[in-house]
Design a protein around this nucleic acid. Structure first.
Length: 268
DNA sequence: ATGGCCTGATCTTCAGGA
């Protein structure tokens, strides 16, 4: 009689919390109910010292953070030991001379993950849009090695790009806008070309798995959303996915982030 | 029901978000 080890089930998620300070209660609540093993966070909007590490630790989570203050900021939370933490990568582009905290990589729970907050781009023709494209080029260069590795690896986060027209509630409103241009979408194709496959989430309600709804104009009740929080995994990661979904329930109610978490379940 | 912006700092006004 053979003895078979039970498979390692792992839940990995990503969530743009739009200020971890304003969202601490929401975050701890979601950790308690969704119970992710690994959670990538974006838009901390605070410093490493002010990150609510104690509240996170009470729930059994370690945290690696890279936050410098008012804008940006990324983190990786894990119920397993976090090792090999890397802030950004070599040749990470600056914006106006500042190296912004938009990417953090770490190994935990048998997977390696990069939490990314891709620059917004602001407007077509803006210097920030060029920064966004250059930043994505540097991301693609950085994943070349882990994309080919045997260790499951994924880039998760707020890409500020809707991969297809179907990922926007009304494309007629985006004729001269960032987030939907061929240039931006080509960068996602480059990421796929480097060996990372997109993990597509299912929707918990309606037909579109949107991840972001503006706070204004009743966007959420009307489901005027966008799918801009994405997951790209290498073969060792993508091949082990058993389910993926957008937790739109977390977008409901008072004190919600304008983004919903994306959850990926793996059977390693 | 899920309900007409939110957050943090430059702090009563603004930049940035997307």
């Amino acid at each position: 009689m053979t003895h078979k080890l039970s498979p390692m089930v792992l839940r990995v998620a990503t969530w743009n919390v739009n200020s971890v300070t304003a969202r601490t209660e929401r975050l701890t609540g979601w950790l308690g109910t969704a119970k992710p093993d690994v959670l990538c966070l974006q838009e901390l909007k605070t410093t490493d010292n002010a990150f609510p590490a104690e509240q996170i630790a009470e729930l059994g989570y370690q945290a690696a953070t890279w936050g410098t203050g008012r804008w940006n900021g990324v983190a990786i939370l894990s119920r397993h030991d976090i090792t090999d933490v890397q802030r950004g990568w070599p040749n990470l582009p600056d914006y106006e001379g500042v190296s912004e905290p938009r990417a953090l990589t770490a190994t935990c729970g048998g997977v390696r993950v990069t939490s990314v907050y891709v620059p917004n781009g602001r407007e077509l023709g803006h210097a920030h849009f060029d920064y966004k494209l250059a930043w994505l080029d540097s991301l693609t260069a950085s994943v070349a090695e882990p994309a080919r590795a045997d260790l499951p690896y994924a880039v998760l986060g707020d890409f500020n790009i809707a991969p297809t027209d179907a990922d926007v509630w009304d494309m007629s409103l985006f004729t001269e806008s960032t987030h939907v241009t061929p240039q931006e979408r080509a960068k996602l194709a480059d990421l796929a070309g480097a060996g990372l496959t997109e993990v597509l989430p299912r929707a918990l309600k309606y037909d579109k798995p949107y991840t972001y709804w503006d706070y204004r104009q009743l966007a959420f009740p009307k489901n005027n959303g966008m799918r801009i929080d994405l997951v790209f995994g290498n073969a060792a990661f993508a091949g082990k996915v058993t389910d993926a979904y957008v937790d739109r329930e977390e977008r409901k109610g008072k004190g919600a982030s304008d983004h919903a978490p994306v959850v990926v379940d793996l059977d390693l």
